[in-house]
């Protein structure tokens, strides 16, 4: 049974001005020069290597990490590698303001948990509960919450029914067997 609770270290993907980055496209996530790669084990090393400020992400990422990004994450191409590369690194889940349409399907169908932000503070240190890179966080998929040191620091949109069904089954292929 896939896990519905994740505990891990946060990566908050900010730009030089300290704002969460929107419109991270699939060429920034997994550049088109690596598209001939078909093995998932080989994908991780190229994650974010065309995203300014995060070109060393793949070297620094650890299994269990949680990645926080802005709006329209994964816009652009249909490449499944842009989801596979995070799985390859052992990243537990991605949390974004919104997703590119194809990226969303690719993640859902492969059973990779992507979550949509309802309310998180990334930028205002004067407000309580600001999440920053390096924080140890707990995400509860069923409750759609984020906790740090036992205190709730964020809320998420709950999974849609189809996303939950596919996630619990494993992937689209396993899910379809149950229909």
């Amino acid at each position: 049974m896939p896990s519905t609770k994740f505990k891990g270290r946060a990566w908050v993907i900010l730009d030089e001005q300290g704002e969460i980055i929107d419109d991270i496209d699939t060429d920034m996530i997994f550049h088109n020069s690596y598209l001939a790669i078909t093995e998932i084990e080989k994908m991780g090393q190229y994650t974010f290597d065309n995203l300014e400020g995060y070109k060393d992400f793949a070297q620094k990422a650890k299994p269990g990490d949680l990645v926080f990004v802005g709006a329209n994450f994964g816009s652009g191409s249909s490449r499944q590698q842009a989801v596979g590369c995070f799985r390859s690194l052992g990243v537990s889940c991605i949390v974004a303001n919104s997703y590119g349409a194809i990226y969303k399907r690719n993640a859902i169908n492969s059973g990779f948990p992507i979550l949509t932000i309802k309310d998180i503070n990334f930028t205002d240190p004067n407000e309580p509960g600001m999440i920053k890179s390096g924080d140890e966080l707990e995400i509860d998929l069923e409750k759609a919450t984020i906790h740090r040191d036992g205190l709730q620091v964020g809320t998420l949109e709950p999974f849609s029914k189809v996303q939950k069904d596919i996630y619990m089954a494993g992937d689209i292929f396993e899910y379809a067997k149950e229909l």
């Binding site: 249909s78 499944q80 169908n109 492969s110 689209i172 292929f173 379809a176």
Partner: peptide, 10 residues
């Protein structure tokens, strides 16, 4: 609709 390779295999 563009889709990824798992979607299309399915």
């Amino acid at each position: 609709q563009g889709m990824g390779d798992q979607d299309i295999a399915f």
